[in-house]
Computed example of a mutant assay.
Amino acid sequence: MLENIKAVLFDLDGTLVDSMWMWKDIDIEYLGRYGYELPSELQKEIEGMSLSETAVYFKERFAIQESLEEIKSTWMDMARDKYTHEVPLKPGAREFLVWLRQQGIRTGIASSNGIELVETVLKAQGIREYLESVHTCCEVPKGKPAPDIYLMVAETLGVKPEECLVFEDVPMGILAGKNAGMRVCAVEDTFSANQREEKKKLADYYIESYDEIPRERMQP
């Protein structure tokens, strides 16, 4: 899996941290303020969108009067406490990040979330120092499944797309990595359990835990 890999790039939510449950809870609470129930298809429709793109979607679909910045600010306030106190790392993630550092393999984050929340959870979990390049889809023209964010992070790390291994938890993210010309490992997540077979077909590899990753380059 790690043969000829010079950089490992991670999505955040559902990939490095177990947080996808949180966003559904926030969507339910936020829409409830306006008298709406969460549509069953909504999570699928916003999959891969950046925080900014999702705010546009909510504003247009539900005729929300708040500005886009106000919508994002509200979501961030709702999420900040959960990220700090309730969201855990995925099994084996910390150990894998430490190992990558030991091996001299570069690392980056390519998230659809907002940068403030990304930095909040990375610092809360004590793993910020292990991630060299942290960027979000709000910084590029198109969110996932477009390859923009993965190409951006690879460029900041000074590596070629074919030298990158991506970890993702949902089909749109997997497609973003593949569209960037990178190898992709799908990560098991309860939130996307109903998409497991689709994820396996799209990705080059599939893991339930980072502990499963062969450490071919591990020094004795």
Rank of each mutant, 00 (worst) to 15 (best):
I64T: 07
K144F: 08
V17R: 00
A93P: 00
Y34D: 06
A124G: 11
L165R: 08
I26W: 05
G108M: 01
S133C: 14
C164W: 05
A7C: 11
L16F: 06
D77F: 12
K72S: 09
G14H: 03
A186H: 03
A124W: 02
E53R: 00
I26Y: 00
E29W: 05
K44H: 13
V8L: 04
V159R: 01
A63D: 15
N113W: 12
S52M: 05
E86H: 13
Q65H: 13
L31C: 08
E162F: 03
D27Y: 10
D204N: 09
T156V: 08
E216A: 07
A203E: 04
A203Q: 04
G143Q: 04
C164H: 03
D13K: 05
Y205Q: 06
K82H: 13
T15L: 02
P220R: 15
I28G: 02
T107D: 08
L175F: 02
L16E: 06
A124T: 12
P141L: 07
F96N: 05
L122M: 10
C164S: 07
H135C: 12
L89T: 02
A154E: 01
M49F: 10
E139R: 10
R128E: 15
T74C: 10
N179A: 14
W75M: 00
G114A: 14
Y205F: 15
E41N: 14
M218I: 14
Q102S: 13
E45A: 02
P145R: 06
D169F: 02
E86S: 13
I105S: 11
G158H: 03
S192C: 12
A63L: 09
Q103N: 14
L117H: 03
D189I: 01
Q65F: 05
M152F: 11
S19Q: 07
L202M: 11
M22I: 12
T15M: 02
K144T: 07
N194M: 09
V118P: 07
E66A: 13
L42M: 14
